[in-house]
Design a protein around this nucleic acid. Structure first.
Length: 448
DNA sequence: TCCCTATTGTG
DNA sequence: ACAATAGGG
């Protein structure tokens, strides 16, 4: 009897317990394993071009690792899975458990559609499965620090071994789809490339991670967000490698992984947080609306706000499908507190463009900045784009890289072009930060 | 994972 | 002037 491994957000062979389960089940039944990926038109429509282009590249890499045996089928999962299971006479379909609202609903529907064929979830995309940890009184965690302590105490299993001598089935395939023509510079995709990048980070940048991760002008981050989003690496693999390392930065990086797991846990318990604020912090009538608001939103998306750090970040997003985390916080604060727009609008734009666009991370980090999350930055914390630029892009290199109009201004003066005379072609500030900060604080005062 | 203002101390 | 600090949104 064959078994099916249905790849979703686990596009790797190493440290993949669900794949091991599929291979073990097939061997016990003296059967073959069908490595399957389903191109669901609904998903293909909603994800933006950069992420789809990367996904297509990652699937090509996975197909290579499988010796060209990856089976790709197009259609709704509820139709494709039963059809493939019938075709290969499979008794079980193996998956890494989905934990987000959409994936959980889909898997329930697929399990139902499969009938007698078992849908077997093994593991999750997290070191500790969302929903696993609770407070002493049995309730979900609301606050990050106690969550992290419980998460560290709980620990995680060692990385899973490679599947033992898998025998892949040869089944007709639609072939890996072409990605859309995304006009962005994407990093190399696939398990191998992710592994290489991770080890380069461990060797070259981990020691300085504590300070350099906040600097958008240098390569101080791990750039693991994309491999983690697609499951080219499992966080358990990263945690095992970190355990072999010394230094203060190890705990800092582990803590960033804990944030990722915290957000997944919050969304597990509160699926509505995908679209709704967990707490309402300003009155509904304080949001900007109308043609002027729409125009400001477009200026924000295009990187034409007149605030150099904001514009550099938004242009980096359009050019590469990625933005440095420090700058994500600054541009998000700008949209919510300076332009008075709902976080959901910014989150949608991010999801359309980010290659690492991941529902729990994206939505809950937006809620963190907007102050609407359970353990979020208080609403009155407003980022000043000029000060953030001077502090974290102290020489202005990041701004000049992404905003060519400002390349004539040397040093950190580039963060305030209006002081030295705004160059031709670069916009004047679309709002006055000092004034809009006051407006936001006033709305917050009315909301209390 | 903020930043502004007022106040006090220092020269 | 400027730095350090407290208090507050």
């Amino acid at each position: 009897m064959a078994s099916v491994h249905w790849f979703r957000r686990d596009l790797r062979l190493a440290d993949n317990p669900a794949l091991v389960a599929a291979v073990d089940r097939a061997r016990a039944d003296d059967g073959l394993v069908v490595p399957l990926f389903v191109v669901d038109p609904a998903l293909w429509r909603t994800a933006g071009a950069p992420r789809l282009a990367y996904l297509a590249a990652s699937l090509r890499a996975l197909d290579d690792e499988l010796g060209g045996r990856l089976v790709v089928r197009t259609g709704r999962a509820t139709d494709v899975l039963p059809a493939v299971a019938r075709e290969v006479e499979a008794r079980s379909v193996h998956v890494t458990a989905a934990t987000e609202p959409y994936g959980r609903r889909r898997d329930e529907a697929v399990a139902h559609a499969l009938g007698d064929v078992e849908l077997v979830p093994t593991g999750s995309p997290y070191a500790v499965a969302p929903g696993r940890l609770t407070t002493g009184s049995g309730t979900p965690f609301q606050v990050f620090t106690p969550f992290r302590n419980a998460w560290l105490d709980h620990g995680w299993s060692a990385p899973a071994p490679l599947p033992h001598t898998p025998r892949w089935a040869q089944v007709p395939t639609d072939g890996v789809p072409d990605g859309p023509d995304a006009e962005v510079d994407l990093p190399a995709a696939g398990e191998r490339a992710a592994h290489d990048r991770w080890h380069r980070f461990l060797d070259d940048a981990l020691d300085e991670y504590g300070t350099e991760r906040d600097r958008p002008d240098v390569e101080g981050t791990s750039s693991m967000s994309i491999p983690l989003k697609f499951g080219e690496l499992h966080p358990r693999t990263l945690l095992a490698d970190l355990a072999q390392r010394q230094g203060a930065s190890v705990a800092t990086f582990r803590s960033e992984l804990a944030w990722r797991e915290f957000h997944a846990d919050v969304l597990w318990h509160h699926p509505s947080a995908r679209t709704r604020s967990l707490r309402v912090v300003v009155p509904e009538d304080s949001w900007a609306h109308g043609a002027a608001a729409d125009e400001a939103f477009v200026a924000w998306t295009q990187g034409r706000t007149g605030y150099p750090l904001v514009d550099a970040g938004m242009r980096q997003l359009l050019a590469t499908g990625w933005m440095h985390n420090r700058v994500r916080m600054v541009v998000a604060s700008f949209l919510v507190k300076d332009l008075h727009q709902r976080w959901q609008r910014g989150a949608d734009h991010f999801m359309a463009w980010l290659v690492d666009g991941d529902v729990p991370q994206n939505q809950l980090n937006w809620q963190w900045v907007a102050g609407t999350g359970r353990d979020a930055a208080p609403y009155f914390r407003v980022f000043n784009p000029v000060l953030q630029g001077e502090k974290f892009d102290p020489d202005g290199d990041y701004v000049r890289r992404w905003v060519p109009e400002l390349r004539g201004i040397a040093g950190k003066a580039v963060h305030q072009p209006w002081r030295v005379g705004t160059p031709e072609g670069y916009p004047e500030r679309i709002v006055d930060h000092k004034a809009e900060r006051e407006v936001a604080l006033e709305a917050y005062g009315r909301g209390r």
